[in-house]
C-alpha cells in the first residue's frame, strides 16, 4: 500500500469501524450448513464470509500417501476469485494460500486424534467467499467447528484472532484497511482445552513487550471465539 495515502486509523481511541482497540468484530458461526459434507460450518466475521467442509475419515487418495499409524490430514484454504474488493483474481491456490493451507494442516494434525484412524484421510476444505482481513484465523475457526460437526474426535477447538499494530498501538482483530496500513500482524490460535499455541505467525517490528502483549490479547479474544464455537454446535443439537 502506498503509505503516503495512509488514512488515520485511530481517532479518539476509536477505529475506522467504530470499535475500541480490544474489540472483536461481530462473529457469527453456524454449523452444519452443507448437505453432502460430513461436517461443515459457515463463519461471518465482520465482513468476512467463510465456509468450511470436512470429509472423512475416508480412503486416502493417492493410496501411497496413507500412514499405517494415523490419519492423514489434508487442509485446503483458498480464496474465491470474487472474494476481495479489488479486481477479479485468479481463483485457486497461490503462494500465500499454499502457505496458509500448510499452517492449517499443522493446526489440525495437532488437534485431531489421528491415531484413532490409521490408513485414512481427513480432508478439510475452506473457501473464503468474502474477505476483509483476518481470513486465516476465521478460516481455521470455521474448520474447527466443521470437524466437530463431522463427529471427528478432537482435543479442543482452535480459536484465535490476529492482533496488529495500528497507528503505533496494538489493536485486536484487524480489518482489511488496518491490515494494509498496519505496522504488524500477529495471528495466534490456541487449543481451547489446554491453552497451547497452535498457530503463531508474525511480521512487522515489535518490541519484546509488545510481542508478549499481542499474544495475551489474542488469548483473551480466543476465549470469546471458543464460546461462539461451542454455541454453534449446541444450536445444531437442539
Amino acid at each position: 500500500m502506498n503509505k503516503a495515502n495512509k488514512p488515520e486509523l485511530i481517532i479518539d481511541g476509536r477505529r475506522t469501524d467504530g470499535r475500541n482497540l480490544e474489540d472483536l468484530r461481530s462473529v457469527k458461526i453456524e454449523s452444519g450448513v452443507l448437505d453432502n459434507a460430513d461436517g461443515s460450518a459457515m463463519v461471518e466475521w465482520g465482513n468476512n464470509k467463510i465456509i468450511a467442509g470436512v470429509y472423512g475419515p475416508r480412503e486416502v487418495f493417492p493410496k501411497h500417501f496413507s500412514d499405517p499409524y494415523k490419519a492423514v490430514v489434508n487442509f485446503r484454504y483458498v480464496m474465491c476469485s470474487f472474494s476481495s474488493l479489488e479486481e477479479h483474481s485468479r481463483g485457486g491456490p497461490n503462494r500465500r494460500s499454499i502457505e496458509i493451507s500448510k499452517m492449517g494442516k499443522h493446526v489440525f494434525e495437532n488437534l485431531i486424534l489421528t491415531e484413532q484412524f490409521p490408513n485414512t484421510a481427513i480432508d478439510i476444505d475452506v473457501e473464503v467467499l468474502q474477505s476483509d482481513g483476518g481470513t486465516r484465523v476465521a478460516a481455521f475457526t470455521a474448520a474447527s467447528v466443521a470437524l466437530v460437526d463431522a463427529g471427528i474426535p478432537v482435543k479442543g477447538f482452535a480459536g484465535g484472532v490476529s492482533v496488529g499494530k495500528v497507528d503505533g498501538r496494538l489493536a485486536v482483530d484487524l480489518n482489511k484497511i488496518e491490515d494494509n496500513y498496519g505496522e504488524s500482524d500477529v495471528p495466534v490460535m490456541f487449543n481451547s482445552s489446554n491453552s497451547e499455541i497452535l498457530l503463531l505467525q508474525m511480521d512487522g517490528l515489535l518490541t519484546r513487550e509488545e510481542y508478549e502483549r499481542s499474544i495475551d490479547l489474542c488469548y483473551e479474544a480466543s476465549k470469546k471465539v471458543n464460546a461462539l464455537q461451542v454455541d454453534s454446535i449446541k444450536k445444531k443439537m437442539e
Binding site: 500448510k102 499452517m103 495437532n110 500477529v186 491453552s195 503463531l200 508474525m202 519484546r208 510481542y211
Partner: peptide
Amino acid sequence: GFICSTQKSGSASFSK
C-alpha cells in the same frame, strides 16, 4: 531489539 517475524511450523504446539 525488535522482533520482525515468527513462524510456528509443524504439528507441535507451544506454550506462551
